[in-house]
Every structure is written in C-alpha cells, then in structure tokens.
Design a protein around this nucleic acid. Structure first.
Lengths: 202, 202
DNA sequence: CCTACCGATCGGTAGG
DNA sequence: CCTACCGATCGGTAGG
C-alpha cells in the first residue's frame, strides 16, 4: 500500500475540478486561492506547485470546458437530418456547461490580462462559435433561414444572439420554469419572432 | 465672491456624477473609493461625509439612472401611434444609459447585499420593466404580436428578452457597426425571427 | 474636509 | 507539500 510514483498524479486534476466548480458557481474574483486549496485539503501555497498563477488556473479551467463542449458540438453537427432539430440539441447542451455564461464572459473580459483573454477568445471561437455558426450557415444554404440579404443574420452573429438569448443573466430578475423549457422557448423566439404571422390561417 | 451657505451643496452631486461614470466604465469592484475621491479632488475619507458606504453610493447611482430612464420611457409610451415604432425608440434609449448592461446586472447580483439588491430590483421592475412590458402587452392586444397562447411571450418575459438581445456582452467577441444599427437589427430579429417566411412571394 | 491609521484579505514567495 | 510571511490594496474609522 505504498505510494507509487503515480500515486498523486491527480492532485492537479483534483484542483482543476474543484476550481472549475467554484469558479462556475461564484466567479473568478469571489473565489480565493485559499478557498480552492481548502476544498482540496491543501494549503494555499501548494496550489502554486501545479499552477503558476490564479489566472493560469482559471485559463486551464476554461480551456477544459471548451474542449468538452467542442466534442459535444461536433457530435451534434455530424448528425444527419434536420438543422432545426440540431440547433435545438445545441440549446440543450450549452446551459449545462455554462449555468451562468454572463458571469464567465464578464470574468474573461475583466479579470484576465490581454494575452490570456486573447487565447481564450480564440479557442472559444474555434471550439464553440464555429460549429454552431456552421449549423446556422447550413440552415441558410438549405433555404430554411433568412440570408443576410433577406433580413437574416450572419451565421456568427446569429450564434452570438443565441448565446445572449440563452443567458439567464441574474435569476433575481426573471424566473423560468425549467432551464430546458426556457432554452426551447428562446430558440422558438429566435426562429419565429414575436410578430403575428401575416395571415392567420393554420 | 464669498462662499455662500449653499456654495458646496453639489459636492455630493459631483461625487454622484463622477462615480456614475466610473462605475459605468469599470464596474463596482474595479473602482475604488480612493479612485472616486481622487477624481473629485477629495481625500477618500471625505466621501464618507456624503455616503455611508460604497454600496450606498452605488445604489444611489443606480437609482438615479433608473429615474432618468423612467422619465424617458414614460414619454415614449405616451406617444400616440405605432407600437413597433415606439419599441424601436425604446431600443435606442436603453443602450445610451447602459453601455454595458451585463456588467451592471452582474454587480447588482454579486456586489450588493440582499436588502440593497431587492431595493434596486424592485425599482428596476417599476421604472424600466413595467413601461416596456406595457408596450409589448399593447402590441398583443392590438393583434400585432403573438399572445402566449399563440406561441408568443408574456410581456414581462419579452422585455427581458429584449434586454438580453441589446446586451453587447463583451466587445472582445463580436463587433458591431454602430450601437444604433445593432439595436435596430436586434429588434428586427426579435420581431421577425430567423426562419424563412412560409411563402417567398413579396 | 484633512491626516493618520485600523483590520482584513488578497495573490504570491522564501525557505525548507 | 508545509510554515511563515511579504507587499499591496481594500473599505471604513478616529480624532481633530
């Protein structure tokens, strides 16, 4: 029962997972390095054996999220069939990883220095924006969605609009039945709009 | 040219305006009381002659914004005529006061204690949400907008969706031509949706 | 409205 | 991986 050379290889993984949960719940600034260490049953300086700075730990947490999301999104995009149905699957996936996306965006923009922010933004564009935008572009090419000329949105712009719609902002202001029902409703609004259709025969 | 009894009645107003601008640009936490004081050419403890705590100063800043917005919104709602046109005017007004609404919502939710957050939330509901929701409700009653039964949104829900759409989140991710053009585009999406209309005869 | 200062907390380091 | 500790910054107070 001796400690093998690879006995504590996952101290780093433990820190990563614990920090992931804490940052997700409370945001970058509100979580102190001492808090992370305590939750890992470590002293605070021990963290710095595995991560050079708090920002670096946060970046690794974000990149890990992005990588997972990327894999899920690629699987959805690869499905054969209805573009609308696949967009619906996307709206089911996103809020699971980002229960408070607005907080995460805030932190990336305000708590990371330029270099790290650029790195995360580039990875975000590649891992998350690109696959979803590809779905919107496919919808346009199939004639399902309006093109820019027809009053629609650019595929990338549409992706960002979807993010904004799915963002629950702060629960203090609005109440939703279930996250999944909310996601469905937001996608419906994005697709159909609020205007009454020109004629009412259905 | 002697200092009258009412010579420095606006020290408080100066602090309020300066803090308003700084909080708007950088958020609650990033602006220190020393920074506010310096911008007012005061020492930091002097602030506490006018505001009991930093949170109280922030609350007064927010309430001042809400009061102004309320007056502008009431004027728009009182206009005779097209509901859609009035909604468009609303989208032009909101981003002027809230250049980074997501930051403000974040601060209200995470930097204020329960009592102050509830106070601001209640005032927000009364000053901003209610007038805009009234416009959406009017649109539904005029048959312009879908009712909830017809797949539309509740008026209050629609108001929050409009907020989310107007929110530019972080400029690091998307780029817009002009704020006003962006607001127009977001309202168009909210009204018409992205789906191709059933028949293409125009 | 100032000077001087407090207690707390933070990210990060030294040295072992 | 620990103990001990640093320098900085913060909101807020004492006392005049």
């Amino acid at each position: 029962m001796e400690s093998s050379p690879r006995d504590a290889p996952d101290t780093r993984q433990t820190i990563l997972r614990v920090a992931q949960q804490l940052f997700r719940e409370q945001g970058f600034r509100a979580v102190s390095t001492r808090q992370i260490a305590a939750a890992c049953q470590l002293t605070q300086p021990a963290l710095y054996r595995h991560f050079a700075t708090k920002q670096d730990l946060y970046v690794e947490v974000l990149l890990d999220d992005l990588q997972r999301l990327h894999a899920q999104l690629l699987a959805i995009v690869a499905h054969e069939g209805d573009v609308i149905q696949r967009l619906r699957e996307v709206t089911h996936i996103l809020p699971v990883t980002w229960e408070d996306a607005s907080q995460m965006f805030h932190d990336i923009a305000h708590e990371l220095d330029d270099a790290r922010r650029d790195l995360v933004a580039a990875q975000f564009a590649h891992d998350v924006v690109a696959p979803i935008a590809a779905l919107f572009a496919l919808g346009v090419s199939q004639g399902l969605l309006r093109s820019v000329d027809q009053g629609g949105l650019d595929a990338t712009e549409a992706t960002f609009v979807l993010f904004r719609l799915l963002d629950e902002h702060e629960p203090a202001y609005s109440r939703h039945s279930s996250p999944l029902a909310h996601a469905e409703q937001m996608l419906d609004v994005l697709l159909h709009g609020l205007l009454q259709p020109p004629q009412a025969n259905r």
